[in-house]
C-alpha cells in the first residue's frame, strides 16, 4: 500500500493544472476562503513563487504547467479564427505569459489568494494579447503617418498632443452630435457606414452621417489655417 500512497500524492500534484474546473467565476470568492485546503496550493505556490519572489525556476515551471491551459483558452476564443490568421498559437501563449509577467511585475502588491484568481489574471493577459493583435491589424492604413514628406511630430509623441488637438477640433464644433461624429471619425477611424452600424441610436442613416461630416469638413476647412498653424504642419 506504500506505493499506492505515493502514487496518490503524485496524482494530486499532476492534476493541478487541471485543478480549476472553475466555471466558478462566481465561486472565486468562495475559493479564496477555501485556499487553506491543500488542493490547489501547490499550483498557487508556483504562481506566488514565480511572481512574488521572482523565482526563475518557478516561472519556467509555471509556463510549462499552464501552457496547455492557455492553448485551450485560445481555441475557445470567440475571435480565434481571425487571431490565428494573424499570429501563431505559440506566440499568443508566449505573449500571454509575458503580459502576465509584466502586469504582475508592475503591480508589486499583487497577491493571488487562489489558483482560479491567478488563472483569471493569466487568461486576461492572453485576451489582452489577442485583442491588441486584432486591434493592430484593424488600424486603418491612413492612421499610420506614412505620407512622404511629412515633417511634423512623430507618432510616438505623447497623448497630450492628441488631447490638445482634440480640444482645438472641439472648439470648432459646438454641436454635440457633430463633436461625437468627429470623435468617431478620428478617434475610432470609422467610415460613414460603420458609424451607422455602431451607433444606430445616434445616427440613423448614412445620409445623415454624410451631411454631418460635410458640416464638420466645412468648419475644418474654414479654420484650416488656424489648425495647420496650431499643429505646425506648415
Amino acid at each position: 500500500m506504500g506505493m499506492q500512497t505515493e502514487q496518490l500524492s503524485n496524482v494530486l500534484e499532476l492534476a493541478l493544472p487541471d485543478a480549476v474546473d472553475a466555471g466558478e467565476a462566481e465561486a472565486l470568492n468562495e475559493r479564496e476562503a477555501e485556499q487553506e485546503c491543500g488542493a490547489d496550493r501547490s499550483g498557487l505556490e508556483i504562481f506566488q513563487r514565480a511572481i512574488v519572489e521572482g523565482d526563475q525556476q518557478a516561472w519556467a515551471l509555471l509556463q510549462d504547467q499552464f501552457s496547455e491551459v492557455v492553448r485551450g483558452w485560445i481555441r475557445r476564443h470567440p475571435k480565434r479564427e481571425i487571431a490565428m490568421r494573424l499570429d501563431s498559437e505559440e506566440n499568443y501563449i508566449a505573449q500571454a505569459f509575458e503580459r502576465f509577467w509584466q502586469a504582475t511585475a508592475y503591480k508589486q502588491d499583487l497577491q493571488f489568494t487562489s489558483l482560479p484568481a491567478a488563472l483569471s489574471y493569466l487568461r486576461a493577459s492572453l485576451n489582452g494579447a489577442i485583442m491588441d493583435t486584432l486591434r493592430m491589424y484593424a488600424r486603418p492604413r491612413e492612421a499610420y503617418l506614412s505620407e512622404p514628406g511629412y515633417e511634423g511630430a512623430s507618432v510616438s509623441e505623447d497623448r497630450d498632443e492628441g488631447d490638445e488637438l482634440w480640444e482645438a477640433l472641439k472648439s470648432l464644433l459646438p454641436q454635440p452630435k457633430e463633436r461625437y461624429l468627429a470623435y468617431l471619425l478620428f478617434y475610432c477611424g470609422l467610415k460613414p457606414r460603420e458609424v451607422v452600424r455602431y451607433c444606430s441610436q445616434e445616427f440613423q442613416s448614412v445620409q445623415d452621417v454624410y451631411r454631418l461630416r460635410r458640416n464638420i469638413i466645412e468648419r475644418l476647412a474654414r479654420n484650416i489655417d488656424q489648425l495647420l498653424w496650431k499643429l505646425s504642419v506648415h
Partner: peptide
C-alpha cells in the same frame, strides 16, 4: 498640407484614448 492634416489627426487621435487590451481584459475579469 490638407492631406497631412487629415493623416495627422487620424494618426494622433486614432484610439489614443482607448485602454489597451490588457486593461480591457482586466476590466472584464
Amino acid at each position: 498640407q490638407f492631406r497631412q492634416l487629415y493623416l495627422y489627426l487620424l494618426a494622433k487621435l486614432y484610439r489614443s484614448q482607448c485602454p489597451d487590451g490588457l486593461h480591457i481584459s482586466l476590466y472584464c475579469a
